[in-house]
Design a protein around this nucleic acid. Structure first.
Length: 576
RNA sequence: GCCUGCUUAGCUCAGCUGGAUAGAGCAACUGCCUUCUAAGCAGUGGGUCAGAGGUUCGAAUCCUCUAGCGGGUACCA
């Protein structure tokens, strides 16, 4: 909002000058406060077009900006920067606007577009482990961010509930020994017999044939396989949902792969009638023009379908039944080619909305952090969360809270820390898992942000207690920074300006599908608040009106922290 | 082979469509708890942005090449 304001003002000035192009106009926060609050390099960009010296152009623009009441100072600097200082009255009025804004300064999209976010997607009969964290948490954050910007964002959990592995599981379940009480410790049991099957099949390949028979029987919906399959799914879902609940993750729908079974043949028919696929080595294959991508199989030579087929069916289900305007898939970057292929195919088939693949890097494991399904040394998500909560609990062990409060604090801090360490990193880069980092509760971590919030809330409580007659509703922002002001005034203004950038940060994160941009913003916000906290004792401020202004600023900062953390799916605490 | 991604401080990572002195956290070191919560604040040290060219007023960022590491590449998802 503040940027839009400046943007419009500069644009106005620019249009008064001939042959300028305001489409490239970019306003950024000044890199150093000696360069004012914001800066732009439009003059430099126009030097060539206008065939003038950049400094002259900058001067011309600056002259036109001087008269704006929004700015207190407009200066030019070599080689052609324009440095803009915001008038404190402007800041005060923007803060007032933001305080009363129900969206906390996040501008809302006018189109009521439906965005499907496809994330998490665990496989039935497999334990969720740390590597599943990324898709789940990033997808959930994206959904929250899109919603905050006014979109109709829907989460879909595309569960892996179909495929060849079920033949193996069925065979193993029927023939291997396992606890009869399937409800107990069940996913672990299913996983165990699956591993057992894999081992035995290495020695005895006839097992694979038996598994195939079980699969065919399942595909024909024959009993008992069909019922068993349903049971495996319900057991798995039950366990997944326990984890989701702990992580505060929700979905608007959970259409697993099997949901699309009845549409798969239709996809092949369509591809064939449009001559998009052809038979090759007994399978149905899509070839791309100029061999842009390697061929993509949509039906195996035994007639069964593949990943790409299901995904194509999903694309058109979302188009026809959900009226999607956009679908975002959150998966790891190894699947890049697959997404390129089926995105391209769906384009040829007449897809009429936008598809986007948000990829993230692999989770790697450092020394001493073994990660192997075969060796059974997996770090389960449950275990990781338990550890995080334990670590958080230890920090407050001696504090004067009830046992129940301590548990709640440990829960919020522990889960928050796990989420934050993932979300604060650029999704694209590989993430190296270490216990040290995952359970870090200091520095740039969730507790740091939660702590800033809790401190602000604490001030608020004490403020109300100490000044019971103070009417907060009649308080006004009165930041009155003057050039060369004290460090108190400087940090106050810096904090205010940063708060005003919240809406921009959220949209930036949305446009790039990078929640870490919000994490970054919030870390800086907390850091500025912590400095402010140390330098400006609000309750000691003698002027009543100034005191009122400071508490409003602290409150707005707290509100923004809470709002922003919520976008990352991280809870806040009133005390910790 | 072909396609594709990565390489920034001792470690883990930011760095937006090119902009002013490349930033954080951890680790190390120095101060600060009778004052709104020290999960904190203030500060110090630490860099050939893998290497070489190019594009231009200006490059960690864009282009080309080289090296190292990773991922993908027809019946898995």
């Amino acid at each position: 909002m503040i940027l839009d304001l400046i943007h419009n003002e500069v644009k106005k000035a620019l249009t008064q000058i001939e042959n300028t192009d305001s489409s490239k106009l970019d306003i950024v926060v000044a890199t150093n406060n000696k360069f004012g609050d914001f800066q732009t390099n439009v003059a430099l960009q126009h030097a060539k077009i206008l065939r003038k010296k950049p400094l002259d152009i900058a001067q011309d623009i600056a002259d036109r900006l001087q008269s704006s009441p929004l700015f207190s100072k407009v200066e030019i600097a070599n080689p052609g920067f324009i440095n803009i200082s915001i008038d404190t009255q402007t800041i005060n009025s923007l803060l007032t606007d933001m305080s009363s804004c129900q969206y906390n300064g996040i501008s809302q999209t006018k189109s009521n577009e439906t965005i499907i976010i496809d994330y998490s997607s665990p496989n039935v009969a497999k334990t969720m482990h740390v590597a599943h964290l990324r898709s789940t948490i990033i997808g959930d954050a994206l959904k929250r961010i899109y919603k905050a910007c006014g979109y109709n964002a829907l989460g879909d959990n595309h569960i892996g509930d179909w495929g060849t592995q079920f033949g193996k599981i069925l065979y193993a379940y029927k023939n291997f020994e396992h606890p009869t009480d399937i409800e107990k410790d069940s996913v672990a049991m299913l996983e165990k017999i699956y591993q057992e099957f894999t081992q035995k099949a290495e020695e005895d390949s006839t097992l694979d044939d038996y598994a195939r028979q079980e699969l065919v029987s399942l595909q024909k919906k024959e009993e008992p396989n069909y019922s068993l399959w349903k049971k495996f799914i319900s057991i798995s879902l039950k366990e997944f949902h326990r984890v989701y609940k702990r992580l505060d993750i929700t979905f608007d729908m959970e259409n697993g792969e099997s949901f699309y079974n009845d549409n798969l043949q239709g996809i092949i028919d369509q591809l064939q009638s449009k001559k998009l696929c052809q038979e090759s080595k007994g399978a149905q294959v899509v070839f791309f023009e100029d061999d842009k991508y390697p061929p993509c199989l949509v039906q195996k030579n035994d007639g069964s379908f593949l990943y790409a087929t299901t995904d194509l069916a999903t694309v058109f289900h979302r188009q026809n039944k959900l009226n999607a305007n956009k679908a975002i898939y959150v998966t790891d970057n190894r699947q890049k080619l697959h997404f390129q292929q089926f995105f391209h195919i769906s384009e040829l088939m007449g897809k009429d909305y936008e598809l986007e693949h948000v990829m993230f890097g692999l989770m790697k494991f450092g020394e001493g952090t073994v990660m192997s399904t075969r060796k059974g040394a997996v770090i389960s998500l449950q275990f990781l969360l338990d550890e995080a909560e334990k670590r958080a609990f230890d920090v407050i062990l001696d504090r004067d809270y009830s046992e129940e409060e301590k548990k709640e604090i440990a829960r919020v801090v522990g889960i928050g820390a796990i989420k934050y360490q993932d979300l604060s990193q650029n999704p694209m880069t590989d993430i190296t898992f270490t216990w040290e980092k995952a359970l870090n509760l200091e520095g740039n971590s969730a507790p740091y942000l939660q702590y800033a919030y809790a401190r602000a809330q604490s001030i608020h409580r004490k403020f109300v207690e100490t000044f019971p007659d103070h009417d907060l509703k009649s308080s006004k922002y009165c930041i009155d920074f003057v050039d060369g002001g004290s460090s108190k005034e400087t940090i106050e203004k810096e904090l205010a300006l940063h708060i005003l950038m919240y809406g921009h940060a959220v949209h930036h994160a949305k446009n790039q599908n990078k929640p870490n941009l919000i994490a970054d913003y919030l870390y800086q916000l907390s850091s500025k608040f912590s400095s402010f906290y140390n330098q400006v004792p609000i309750l000691k401020e003698e002027s009543q009106s100034k005191r009122g202004s400071l508490i409003l600023l602290s409150d707005l900062c707290a509100k923004t922290l809470k709002d922003g953390l919520n976008l990352l799916g991280i809870e806040t605490l009133e005390r910790m």
